[in-house]
């Protein structure tokens, strides 16, 4: 794999890191996505607007990407909408129940050196890998 294949992921990681650090420095909030979104329904009144605006910003960032770097989108996995709905439900329940997703446990938690987040991160990566292997086996069997 050429060196350049690692440049974009590293640069993207640095940008994500700066976004999370900036939010923490100015507002004191942690940008774990499942926490930001999940907090919406339960949050007290004054705690809602920043969450909505962060999500609005994410979709806005997606629109910017679409304009200047459309290659960021468009790949498909061949999963049907029904399959993706089941997956989405699992992701929604699982991230809220375990208190974090890739950004909450993986980015914020690891940066805070949280053992709980390390365990959660290793667990969802290992389970994700096992799931991909299982889907591959099922696919080759049918």
């Amino acid at each position: 794999m050429p060196f350049s294949a690692f440049l974009a992921p590293t640069l993207g990681g640095v940008l994500i890191g700066l976004a999370v650090a900036g939010l923490l420095l100015f507002t004191g909030k942690l940008a774990g996505i499942s926490g930001v979104v999940g907090g919406l329904a339960q949050a007290e009144k004054g705690d809602r607007a920043w969450r909505l605006l962060f999500i609005f910003g994410m979709v806005g960032g997606g629109a910017l990407l679409l304009c200047v770097h459309p290659e960021a989108f468009g790949s498909t996995t061949g999963r049907t909408a029904g399959t993706l709905a089941v997956a989405g439900l699992l992701v929604g329940v699982g991230t809220r129940a375990s208190g974090g997703c890739t950004s909450g446990h993986g980015v914020c938690g690891l940066s805070l050196l949280s053992p709980r987040s390390l365990v959660a991160t290793l667990t969802f990566i290992a389970t994700g890998a096992a799931t991909v292997a299982a889907v591959r086996l099922l696919g080759s069997a049918s």
């Binding site: 996505i33 997956a87 699992l90 992701v91 991230t95 375990s98 890998a129 799931t131």
Partner: peptide
């Protein structure tokens, strides 16, 4: 966390990228 991992493995989506991708 395993529930999340199964959903992630099936779809290739975690919450952040999914929201960003919803622009399409």
């Amino acid at each position: 966390a395993m529930l999340f991992g199964v959903g992630w493995g099936i779809s290739g989506f975690c919450p952040g990228p999914a929201i960003t991708s919803a622009v399409i």
